[in-house]
Computed example of a mutant assay.
Amino acid sequence: MLSSERVSNPVSVRYAWAGDPFFANLRNSDGLPAEPFRTDEWLPYERTLE
């Protein structure tokens, strides 16, 4: 379960997905580090100029 006082209606989660997980600190109950993950399948933002 994930929660945040700063996010009232979360729609996805990304963890250490930016390519440099130096500060990644999520661990499971056995103390093993979590791999980077994301719960969305959104494409990168593309700005269109009209």
Rank of each mutant, 00 (worst) to 15 (best):
F23V: 00
V7Q: 08
F22W: 12
R14K: 05
E41T: 13
R38T: 04
T48I: 15
G31K: 01
G31E: 06
L32R: 08
S29W: 07
E5F: 05
N9L: 07
F22T: 15
P44I: 06
Y15L: 01
P21H: 01
V11F: 05
A24E: 01
P10M: 09
L49T: 14
E46V: 15
R6Q: 06
D20C: 11
R47V: 15
S12L: 03
D20A: 13
L26I: 05
P33F: 09
R6L: 15
F37H: 06
F23E: 09
L43E: 11
D30N: 09
F22K: 11
R47P: 13
D40N: 10
V11T: 08
L43F: 09
V11Y: 10
R38I: 03
P10T: 03
T48Y: 06
E50G: 15
A18H: 12
S8P: 04
V7A: 02
R6C: 04
S8Y: 04
R47L: 15
S4D: 04
A34M: 10
S29C: 11
R6E: 13
E50I: 12
L26D: 03
S12Y: 06
A24Q: 04
Y45G: 12
L2F: 05
Y15W: 06
S12G: 02
P33T: 01
D40Y: 03
P36H: 00
E5W: 05
